[in-house]
């Protein structure tokens, strides 16, 4: 029931969001239509950081409680992390090509985002190569914590290393009021989408575990 309500909410918000982005939002003075990618790009980027801290939180909770529920949350957050880092990098590349004239540059934020994706990937690879369920959960949680601790160090080192990305306009007050409204709707829509996807992914993880348990039970019975 909960997931149905969430699903309908996502549908409604996403239609409203698309309307806001493509019809309501004013054209940006210098970049024109291309700037509309920004309304997708920013929620993607924020979602990927959210995934990193969700993964870290779930890992800590698993080591404290030893409840597989937290491990499922961590694994789902890891997969969401891959999804949203890739989406933010791809939407960023689509924006950068006409504006900067290049798909990719080793700028601080881009590098950081790419590295975050790599860390999520190595987390999922580690899980894939651990055979036992409990080991997978415990070692995954330890790596999740180590990875979460790494994020601020990555941020600092890469930021000092180089910077080319446009400075954030949200807190600087450089954003038009109409654009603000669009951004808000977009954040709400993508927050709902995130919650929905996470909820579904965790439900699938639960079913997977039940199937595995039943398989073992049947094999043991034979």
């Amino acid at each position: 029931m909960r997931s149905k309500i969430l699903g309908v909410l996502v549908l409604v918000l996403m239609i409203a969001n698309l309307y806001m982005i493509f019809v309501f939002a004013p054209n940006e003075a210098t970049m024109g239509v291309i700037q509309r990618i920004f309304y997708f790009h920013l929620p993607f980027g924020v979602s990927s950081y959210l995934s990193a801290y969700l993964l870290g939180f779930a890992s800590i909770m698993y080591l404290i409680k030893h409840d597989l529920k937290w491990d499922r949350l961590g694994a789902s957050a890891g997969e969401m992390g891959i999804l949203f880092t890739s989406m933010s990098i791809m939407s960023g590349a689509l924006w950068a090509k006409p504006v900067w004239g290049i798909w990719w540059t080793w700028d601080a934020r881009l590098t950081l985002q790419f590295l975050l994706g790599l860390i999520f990937l190595s987390y999922l690879m580690l899980r894939a190569y651990l055979p036992e369920r409990e080991k997978k959960a415990a070692l995954g949680a330890v790596f999740g914590i180590l990875a979460m601790v790494d994020v601020p160090f990555n941020y600092l080192s890469i930021r000092w290393w180089r910077t080319q990305h446009p400075q954030p306009v949200i807190l600087g007050g450089g954003l038009d009021w109409d654009m603000w409204k669009v951004m808000m709707v977009s954040f709400c829509a993508f927050a709902a989408l995130y919650a929905y996807l996470l909820d579904r992914r965790m439900a699938i993880a639960r079913v997977e575990e039940e199937v595995e348990y039943l398989e073992h039970a049947i094999l043991a019975h034979d």
Binding site: S122, Y129, L146, D150, F153, N154, S157, I158
Partner: peptide, 26 residues
């Protein structure tokens, strides 16, 4: 700690660089 984690996996030697290189970037 990462080498102890990777020692538990099925592909020990391959897993360590995969885990370590992204985390040692700073």
């Amino acid at each position: 700690i990462l080498s102890t984690i990777s020692a538990n996996t099925r592909m020990k030697e391959v897993m360590l660089p995969v885990l370590q290189i992204p985390l040692t970037v700073p």
